[in-house]
Design a protein around this nucleic acid. Sequence first.
DNA 1: GCAGGCAGTCAACAGTTGTTGGCCTACGGG
DNA 2: CCCGTAGGCCAACAACTGTTGACTGCCTGC
Lengths: 240, 240
Amino acid sequence: MHASDSDTDRESRSGSGDGNSNGNGDSGASAPVPAPAPPRTRAAARRSDSTRAAILHAARERFASDGYERATIRAIARDAKIDPSMVMRYYGTKEGLFAAAVAIDLELPDLSALPRHEVGQALARHFLAMWEENEVLTALLRVAATSRAGAERTQDIFRDQVLPVARQVCPDPEQVPARAALVSSQLLGLALTRYVLCFPPAAELAREEIVAWLGPTLQRYLTAPHPGPPDRPGRPGRPG
Amino acid sequence: MHASDSDTDRESRSGSGDGNSNGNGDSGASAPVPAPAPPRTRAAARRSDSTRAAILHAARERFASDGYERATIRAIARDAKIDPSMVMRYYGTKEGLFAAAVAIDLELPDLSALPRHEVGQALARHFLAMWEENEVLTALLRVAATSRAGAERTQDIFRDQVLPVARQVCPDPEQVPARAALVSSQLLGLALTRYVLCFPPAAELAREEIVAWLGPTLQRYLTAPHPGPPDRPGRPGRPG
DNA sequence: GCAGGCAGTCAACAGTTGTTGGCCTACGGG
DNA sequence: CCCGTAGGCCAACAACTGTTGACTGCCTGC
């Protein structure tokens, strides 16, 4: 509502909609956007693309280290070695820039192709590797904790990328959302303590050690039978 | 360093140090500060104390719902129905206000007094109850995700309150920090997905159901034998 | 060779923020 | 009775924010 019309105007002149370019100097986290309409001239387009990528890269770093509010357009522009107004011209709004910066594909593996008892470890291992090579994820988590827009974007990723994978290994379709949420809670919680809050013990754990600890947990959340009372009030003790 | 001297000056005039009053209209999360030096006159002091509490209450709500940056002094003052300058006079700095607002005692139970196989569930149950009655915790988590000061305060709580409790049930003292960090990762991750990010499946789960799911996880993190390879490179498969 | 568009810069605007100092008012002690 | 003190409000400041518009060169297509 702020500047949507002028934004659209500027964007239409610039060549593409609101997405980003396909990676060149990028950390490779911009998958879901297809190639935008190619501009007429090659040289100019290439320059523009590299600037776009530089902005995106700087934005990811800043959002990851400072969060949404403290990551100022000016700082991002300074990092990208361009004028702040260029950021606005390319991405219209700070929010637009953020949306473009945190568009990411988790590239979750096909769990149905794995031996049933290894999905937990595989999931943990993939998640850790993904997180450590993409600062985008830290940026997203940081922002999601404070802004509603960020939280919604995280929900989108959960719904579009985590849920389907959980569906591959969950026995009861009705329990898929809850189980997937439990898995996410453990994975995001680890990312939080390790990469955002930087609890020393969590940050110092070796990657494979984390995999060994979290693997069985995720495995249980995904495939173990429902442990508790369904929704009974009071406090019935489990039999056994 | 901002306004520490004038802050101290103002505070000393006002009657107490930097803490808060003992709860009157408060949500009851201000334990670690002993009763401040009582001012001379009763009526004035009581008025002052209620204002202090109102500020603290409003601050907690705002920090919890908006995070640090978006929770403005002006908004907090408006909620507390006083002038913004009063907030500064009472707490010196926004950071000081935040520090006072998120001072909390987790009141973790004495795990050594429980049957060994129930500590996981007890921990999960206590944590959920605590979180749902103290908006302070959501505020702290939100802020911790973006500001370094907030993250450090969370680390303090982990070190001073979670670690000792973990020590009560952990067999090997050397593994206590790592195990406590794993426990924290799961608990904070749940709080994150349920209360901050508001993943629908996580938010809709019944409390006892979460206890049933998380209990065994925490139990394992605390008491189960070390599952993985200590710190070997490569990827040695576990026997069995 | 020339016009047109495009990447990029500069300076400025309006709004908001934390923070400060001065002033007013109620009230309790002498 | 008056006076000091402390609680509270108002207005303002300086810094910083996202955002915008006008201006400048460079390159390309005709």
